[in-house]
Design a protein around this nucleic acid. Sequence first.
DNA 1: AACGGACTCAACCGCACAGGA
DNA 2: TTCCTGTGCGGTTGAGTCCGT
Length: 256
Amino acid sequence: MGRKPCCEKVGLKRGPWAIEEDQKLMNFILNNGIQCWRLVPKLAGLLRCGKSCRLRWMNYLRPDLKRGALTEAEEDQIIELHSRLGNRWSKIAAHFPGRTDNEIKNQWNTRIKKKLKLRGMDPKNHKPVEKDKDFASEEGSLQPAEPSKEELKLQDNNPGSKGNNQMENDQVDNCCSSGQDSNLVQTNATSSKDLDAAGSILTPRTDQSESFSSRIDESILQEDSYQHWIDNVEDFLLSWDGFSNLEEIFHLDSHQ
DNA sequence: AACGGACTCAACCGCACAGGA
DNA sequence: TTCCTGTGCGGTTGAGTCCGT
């Protein structure tokens, strides 16, 4: 007997989210918090499944998200963490406040893998690629001796390749224990520090998602926090065209 | 200007896991 | 202990965009 689907898919909308949908979801979560994702679309008036709402919130609407490209330092940190953790994107993302696992996963698949290959490293095991098992044979056109345009572009962005990250897989740890990690968190936290005043909804997601959800409930309903969040979130979202009129949208809605 | 290939990234799918009944 | 439900995670896809010809 198969498992029941997470939601009734008949009549539900799929694909890219419209601004109105984003607005509805944001308004609902800001006003009510998240008790149960399955109920969120019904209560928010969305023709989406709860899973879709959760994903949209986590990967795009969360106010603590840091937008923009990852820095070289972040990429190198991802490489190091991947050498220890493997494809545990959520664990890796936990080291980067404001970054999502999806974002890091995409970054890995599109850029970092190529970057590693340029360094002569195997992205899977972070060990030097053997000459006879050159990645050219694996991926066809990628010849180290004659880099593609994309590779040249990557090289431009990465003038000083760092050393190898050959950490043993059995050294995997799941917590932010190293001093390097602490530094990173602290560095990134400067960008979200102020936002934190608006309530712990702005606290970067950690693996303890339960605490994330429950903390939302405690804080986001406060009117002051709400306004504070609007004030601060502009810095994050104004670069995003779809929400350039965010404040206007929310003011309108709050008066409905 | 038009076309086509390469690339990016938001979103979906299916499975695993945790917790409650 | 077992079953069910909700949530989280990783892999994959495909539409949109970029860029070279």
